[in-house]
């Protein structure tokens, strides 16, 4: 017996890399007595003898199975419901009405949105015009104030001149 090849197979077995055929060869090897077996094979012998016994364990005869559940729970095919398209004209009319309603609603929504946008634009333009006018008036007011100050100074001068001419 080539113990080397058996040892190599055994190593593959321990590593979990052996094939079913190799495992069968190992089981066949260990099922027979080998008086001069090396130690690495000797340690595996009880396991293989146990596996052989377990594999050969006699399962009791197959009992009678109760398959009545197949009849009880067999899915009954639901009855075929025939469709009559003409009979359901009210359904179709309702669908068309609903679609028209939804379409009209969407159109209205779109139109009102456009009006609101235009209003916003107008308001924005008015606001800009107001700011511009305000700025122009502020400029005018500033210049007017400057003129008033000058006129006041001139008025003091006139008053003083009048008083002096009266004394003379």
């Amino acid at each position: 017996m080539d113990y080397k090849s058996i040892s190599a197979l055994l190593e593959k077995y321990w590593d979990g890399e052996s094939t079913l055929a190799e495992e069968a060869a190992l089981k066949a090897f260990f099922s027979e007595p080998h008086p001069d077996m090396p130690e690495d094979l000797l340690e595996a012998a009880p396991l293989f003898q146990y596996l052989e016994e377990e594999s050969a364990i006699r399962v009791p005869a197959e009992p009678e199975w109760d398959m009545s559940f197949l009849e009880e729970t067999t899915v009954k095919t639901p009855p075929v419901v025939k469709m009559y398209p003409v009979k359901n004209w009210m359904k179709y009319a309702a669908i068309v009405l609903m679609a028209a309603g939804v379409g009209y609603g969407l159109k209205q929504h779109h139109a009102s949105r456009q009006i609101a946008m235009e209003q916003l634009k107008e308001e924005e333009e008015a606001r800009k015009a107001f700011i511009e006018t305000k700025r122009a008036l502020a400029l005018l007011s500033r210049n007017l104030n400057k003129g008033t100050e000058k006129m006041q100074a001139l008025s003091y001068f006139n008053t003083a001149t009048e008083k002096l001419s009266v004394k003379d």
Binding site: G16, E43, A44, P46, L47
Partner: peptide, 24 residues
């Protein structure tokens, strides 16, 4: 599967070695 098999066999091997269970 292979990893679990390797670990299972290794564990059995070590247990049998520790108990000095050898061939009959």
């Amino acid at each position: 599967v292979k990893v679990n098999l390797h670990r299972a066999r290794k564990a059995v091997r070590e247990k049998l070695q520790n108990q000095q269970v050898y061939g009959l």
